[in-house]
Amino acid sequence: MERRTFLRSAVAGAGVLAFSGAMWDTALAAPAQNGPSPYGSLLSADANGVMLPSGFTSRIVARSSQVVSGTSYTWHNAPDGGAVFPNGTGWIYASNSEVGSGGGGVSVLRFNSSGTIISAQRILSNTSSNCAGGATPWGTWLSCEETSTGQVWETYPATGASAVSRPAMGRFKHEAAAADPVRQVIYLTEDQTDGCFYRFRPTTWGNLSAGTLEVLVAGSGTSGTFTWQTVPDVDGSPTATRNQVSGAKHFNGGEGVHYANNTAWFTTKGDNRVWELHVDTNTFELAYDDSLVSPGSAPLTGVDNITGSTYGDLYVAEDGGNLEICIITPDDIVAPFLRLVGHNSSEITGPAFTPNGQRLYFSSQRGTTDSASGGITFEITGPFRT
């Protein structure tokens, strides 16, 4: 993200003669702090139970166990991770179904240029606990199974072609994925209390059937340098992938991951952190830590899915907390962007922007009912910064 990278570079340029080694790592660490949202404070909840800043509106586009308006398709239960893909003059929103025991999968909503839903379809079935995932530059959605032997499934939102498992990407408790077209790798998070952060290097970029799975190796601190080492046995049996490489860095509950401009941001729910990996320099630091926020209490807790806008803002969804999506700006301010009212036993999932950055999609996984069949998928429109 260019503004955020510029700010980091400005700090580095000003102090390059004063810091080295461990002191340099400390100088770079500047987790986001409380401050005013660029969009202003939240207004009272609208008719859909969404608190938004002035100028923004919400729309419910799908409800679990109900037929999607304008189609004959019944929307899946427990909607989770998602992404938006261009589709001619319109777009597609792909959404996981986090249902276990082979009841999970992926569905899509297809929109025309005016935002009207023109079709909906299941594109992956009979998988388990499809949590988050990631979009590829070639237009596929990587749906990740959050089970101990989970796989990554490559799905095809535009055509609905049969999904394909990608075992070369590892068998572990997959959470999310993010494509890095510069280094031609896919970053992967692992939802374990001692999970790792991985990257997959395809033998041929655009073909995920073969390649090398690597794990991030670093010290125990919250900033420093890192390297990558090959995972010897990607099927994770009998030794789990996270336990195969000595020195692999362990993270407390890996969740969402987002890549832009030589940086990968990912979240860890066990300690309410957002990590920032500078993959061009192999250095890392904290972008957010709820225990380091001031003044006042932390606005962002229960960190989960993450996405970014074309402007450079990060949007982080909560699983718990106040059921908010919070914004982290390029100048390291954190503030609520929206809040759901009456969704007390749910979680916010699948935030994703349309290509022009003017519409944001996300779901409340269990809605107001505390049931997988009560999920609600929303669309937010308004004056997003682009």
Results as ranks from 00 to 15, higher is better:
R59P: 02
Y156L: 03
S64A: 14
E154V: 03
I328A: 02
A163G: 11
D233N: 15
D290V: 00
D180E: 05
N305Y: 08
Y361T: 13
V106D: 09
V274H: 06
S129G: 01
T89R: 11
G350Y: 12
Q244F: 11
N126C: 01
T307I: 07
N207W: 04
T89L: 12
C144Q: 10
S41A: 15
V217R: 05
I348P: 07
G170W: 01
R339C: 00
H343K: 08
S113F: 04
H258E: 15
G342F: 02
E145M: 05
D191M: 03
A317N: 09
E285T: 12
W24Y: 13
V67F: 02
P295D: 07
H250R: 15
A179Q: 07
D280K: 09
F111M: 06
G308C: 09
T149R: 10
A287V: 08
V68E: 06
G382Y: 02
A14R: 11
N96K: 01
M169V: 06
D332C: 06
A62W: 09
G170Y: 03
Q184I: 05
R199K: 11
T230W: 02
R183E: 10
G13K: 06
G375H: 05
A260Q: 07
S72F: 07
G256L: 05
A45T: 09
S346Q: 12
T57K: 15
A218M: 06
I117T: 14
S162C: 00
D235W: 04
P157S: 08
T74S: 15
D180F: 04
N126M: 11
A62I: 04
P31S: 02
C196P: 00
D194K: 14
A161L: 12
R8V: 05
I348A: 10
G105C: 13
S373N: 10
N112M: 03
G90W: 10
S148F: 03
S364F: 00
D332A: 15
A287T: 08
G382H: 01
P137Q: 13
G270E: 08
G221W: 00
A317I: 06
E318G: 12
S345T: 11
V293K: 03
T71K: 08
S107W: 00
P330H: 03
L42D: 03
F111H: 06
L216H: 06
W205C: 05
A47C: 02
P336M: 01
N282M: 07
F200G: 01
A260P: 01
P36I: 08
T281H: 12
E347Y: 02
A120W: 13
P181T: 07
S119L: 13
H174M: 09
G350W: 13
S220G: 14
D194P: 04
I60P: 03
A335G: 00
V16I: 13
A83K: 12
A287D: 08
L17I: 00
S246W: 11
S346W: 06
V106H: 01
L142D: 07
A240Q: 09
S20I: 05
A27W: 15
T71S: 05
V185P: 03
T222Q: 14
D290F: 08
F353H: 06
T349G: 11
V334H: 06
D370N: 15
L286E: 08
L43C: 05
D235H: 04
K249H: 07
G82R: 09
E214S: 08
L216S: 05
S125K: 12
I348R: 04
G195Q: 06
T267N: 10
C131E: 11
S223E: 03
S363H: 02
